[in-house]
Computed example of a mutant assay.
Amino acid sequence: MRPPISVIELTDGIETVSVIGLEKNTGKTVVINRLLREFRKEGVSVGLTSTGLEGEKIDQIYLNKKPEINVSKGTYFATSEKDFHNRRFSATVLDLRDYRSPLGRTVFARAETAGKVIISGPSILDYLCETVKTLKSYGCDKVLIDGSTSRLSPGAPRISDGIILATGAALSMNLEELVRKTRFAVKLISLPGAERELRNRLLPLEIGVWIDDNGVFERLSSSSLTASYSSTDTVGKTIYINGSLTSSVLLRLAEPGTRVVIRDFSCIFVDEQTLVKYERSGGRLEVVYPANLIAVTVNPYSPTGFSVKSRELVEALEKFISVPVIDVLEETAN
């Protein structure tokens, strides 16, 4: 195993951190609580929000008890009206935004005493981006985003400066499959960025699919997305997709030397088999805005009672993943 490193050390110099889980019960809340506790010790001002419902006492699927989010005095947070009113600690309302969800508008508040809270922030990325900006405007040194399960978009570079990916036994009862699924997610998040000259040419382009024709990007018609690309020679071409990339589209572009560029990894909805086939054909996949994965955390326990050996899981992931792999449950116990 690699030399131990604390998850808190990895956030140095990073203002906004998204904690994303590949499945429920992979330890996101444990990571959030660890960071909140360490930031409090260091006197760091923290803002907290979520892209879903986080901090509930009972898991809605397995009905097992879950760790709740613990905030301390001075913590800033953004949550829904419903969950704000259900809190059991003193807090000052700072703002109320019409970022509507089934749980009501978004309340921005500061905790005046310590307590447990359910965070149910905005799920729309534009609202999430504004929420982060608002929390920073209160003087927060760090903003933590508790990302919804299986949704990678909160880690998009326009939202987050760093990503912590939570995985674990809840993702699969088979160690090999668990590692494979985690490795694929890490690969998508860690896609390389296109060179600066190309990025500068792509940034002004509108939503759509564009192909480089002798140094000039031409927009393809919308019908080209569902039709065969046989009429267009994509061999050795650069194609920019300013929108979502799906498996069906990527398969049509599986030609030697083809380079597909996407805005960022959160726009990719491609399965592992398709990406492997595309790369084996000689294609490259890059992004305009590369993300910053700072760590992978593991929870060796599943809510069904299944578990894996922590050391075995960490070592298996370290063979394929360059960023630190940390068992936060073990770290917390120490």
Rank of each mutant, 00 (worst) to 15 (best):
P122E: 12
E81V: 10
L251A: 09
A227W: 09
Y289V: 03
V132T: 03
K73Q: 13
V7M: 10
G47F: 11
T113H: 06
R201Q: 14
L152C: 07
G215V: 10
V270W: 05
T79W: 02
I5R: 09
G162Y: 02
I207Y: 14
P303V: 00
S281F: 14
G208K: 12
A114Q: 13
D264Y: 14
I69R: 00
E255Y: 07
N33T: 05
S310E: 12
P4H: 15
L128S: 04
G147A: 15
I145Q: 06
K133R: 14
P122D: 11
N242A: 06
S160V: 05
E195T: 02
R259V: 15
L144Q: 11
E195C: 03
G74H: 13
A194G: 02
K309Q: 13
T304M: 08
V186H: 02
E38A: 14
S137C: 09
D146R: 00
L175W: 01
K116N: 11
P4Q: 14
N25T: 00
F89H: 13
L125S: 11
D161P: 04
G27P: 02
S18M: 00
T79C: 04
E315L: 06
V107D: 06
T79E: 05
E330H: 10
N86C: 06
S101V: 07
V328R: 13
A91S: 10
Y301M: 11
V46E: 08
I262D: 07
S153C: 06
S101A: 11
V308P: 05
P157C: 13
S307P: 12
E315C: 11
D264Q: 10
I262P: 01
E38S: 12
D264C: 05
L329M: 09
G193K: 12
R183F: 09
G121H: 04
E15M: 05
D327A: 07
L152A: 10
D141G: 12
K41N: 07
T182I: 05
I239Q: 00
C129F: 13
V107G: 04
C267L: 12
G21N: 02
R158L: 14
N86D: 13
D271E: 15
D161M: 02
S307K: 15
R87N: 07
L188M: 13
K28C: 09
G13R: 11
Y62M: 06
I159S: 00
L313T: 10
D98N: 14
G21W: 01
R280H: 09
V235K: 08
P154M: 03
V186Y: 02
R201W: 06
V314R: 08
P300W: 07
V314K: 11
L191Q: 06
E81P: 04
T232K: 14
K82Y: 15
S221N: 00
I61D: 10
R151A: 10
A78I: 04
T79D: 05
V19M: 08
V323H: 03
C267F: 13
V117H: 01
T182C: 06
T79N: 03
I164M: 09
S228E: 03
V296H: 07
L329H: 08
I8Y: 15
R219M: 11
E15D: 15
R2V: 04
V93Q: 13
